[in-house]
């Protein structure tokens, strides 16, 4: 479903701030794979997701989604294949627009936008039903501005928007990191449920090792712009935080440098 072949990206090349963010990443996701991604600070986790999303173009290597080469495609064009939820709850929705308007924007992802009315009555009923499934009471607030919602509500809404057209790949970039623990757990369980129910292919970056172990069918660990560990199936089920930390220092020859991961 997703195939990254030896992608590299260097930011600020040729300056003192030069930073090799991706140093030859190759990864193949099969249909229905739910992969959690962990790694230290600056390991390239988010950069890899952004490379897939097309936030920037990679320096070398190729990116294929569903067998189609999207390496040179713009972010907006690639969006047709993707669903994205960001770390910042403010990032995934438009605060000045209503809940239903935000949903309607997502509904038209990858489709041509013309001069037809932005929302139809039929869609509205559909949105109501989908929002009701979130269990947050948003179904009665279709014409509420998203800016008035809490971070957790916005993140749940973004998740719904990201998954409504059945994206080929769902990209979750530490999407629960900015929420309080209780809300984070709710949003994470919701993500899990949607991915399972819809059989989506997903990449989820997380700083929480326990979450990375508990969710998904495959786990990859990154360090210095490379994938250093790739575990799936029974082997993943048997993982523990201690084993992961040990594996990290064995493979990278350094201590795991991510305070948040160690503290949580």
């Amino acid at each position: 479903m997703l195939k990254l072949t030896d992608i590299t990206k260097t930011f600020n090349a040729g300056t003192v701030n030069q930073k090799v963010a991706l140093n030859g990443v190759s990864l193949t996701l099969n249909e229905g794979d739910f992969v959690t991604v962990i790694g230290g600070n600056g390991a390239g986790k988010s950069t890899m997701l952004n490379a897939v999303a097309g936030t920037f173009l990679v320096d070398s290597g190729t990116i294929e989604i569903g067998g189609k080469d999207v390496t040179r495609l713009s972010e907006a064009k690639r969006a047709a294949h993707l669903g994205r939820v960001f770390q910042d709850p403010m990032m995934g929705t438009c605060a000045d627009m209503w809940i239903e308007e935000n949903l309607a924007l997502a509904k038209r992802r990858g489709k041509k936008r013309g001069l037809g009315w932005s929302i139809t009555a039929k869609e509205r009923a559909e949105y109501k039903e989908q929002l009701a499934q979130l269990g947050l009471g948003l179904e009665d607030r279709l014409s509420t501005k998203v800016g008035l919602l809490s971070g957790g509500q916005r993140q749940a809404l973004t998740l719904l928007m990201a998954t409504m057209n059945r994206p080929q790949i769902l990209l979750l970039d530490e999407h629960t990191a900015a929420l309080d623990p209780k809300t984070a757990e709710k949003v994470l369980n919701l993500s899990d449920k949607i991915i399972r129910d819809e059989g989506l292919t997903a990449l989820m970056v997380t700083h929480n090792m326990k979450d990375a172990i508990a969710h998904g069918n495959r786990l990859i660990m990154m360090n210095a712009g490379k994938i250093i560990l790739d575990v799936s199936g029974e082997e993943k089920k048997a993982l523990t935080v201690e084993a992961l930390l040990e594996a990290f220092s064995r493979v990278s020859g350094a201590e795991f440098a991510n305070d948040r991961a160690l503290l949580s």
Partner: peptide, 18 residues
């Protein structure tokens, strides 16, 4: 609406294929 989303949240707009 796509124009409004662009002004409101450019990153979100691009993520929605705008």
């Amino acid at each position: 609406c796509a124009v409004r989303a662009t002004g409101g949240n450019e990153r979100m707009a691009r993520a929605q294929g705008i």
